[in-house]
């Protein structure tokens, strides 16, 4: 008789399965979705408006006032986006990448690096 298939890597498979199961549990998924929408959206908005106010070719105070005036609009759009896309992975990657790109660009322009 063959040993049951799962007997050898039993512990390993079980742990992975447990993690996958818990991460894909409904509550965790909802939490991750809210997290990226609220925190990720905030970071995206902060980075994009900071970059926008820096690159706009108008007087400094006008650039700042314009950027903050549309910031809530940007935040709301990102938030709705985070809940409208089906794949949570896509949401996380797209928001993190774009936010990173804005910060990187800003760092280059400001000469932080």
């Amino acid at each position: 008789m063959q040993a049951p298939l799962h007997s050898a890597p039993f512990d390993k498979v079980n742990v992975i399965a447990l993690i996958v199961k818990s991460v894909s549990s409904y509550r965790v998924l909802v939490f991750l979705r809210f997290f990226i929408a609220i925190i990720g959206g905030y970071a995206f908005t902060s980075a994009s408006t900071a970059l926008l106010s820096f690159v706009l070719p108008i007087a400094k105070q006008d650039a700042v006032l314009f950027s903050v005036s549309i910031s809530i609009l940007i935040y709301a759009v990102v938030f709705i986006y985070a809940f409208s896309v089906k794949s949570l992975k896509t949401v996380w990657i797209s928001i993190l990448l774009s936010t990173g790109a804005f910060i990187g660009l800003l760092a280059l322009l400001k000469g932080w690096v």
Partner: peptide
């Protein structure tokens, strides 16, 4: 309503555009 508190919510545009941050911005406006 959120715009009335916007400089608390998003101080970053003013902080990147002005070397002395919010103070510099408010002095300017």
């Amino acid at each position: 309503g959120m715009i009335t508190l916007i400089f608390m919510l998003f101080p970053y545009p003013a902080q990147t555009s002005y070397d002395d941050g919010m103070r510099g911005f408010f002095n300017d406006v």
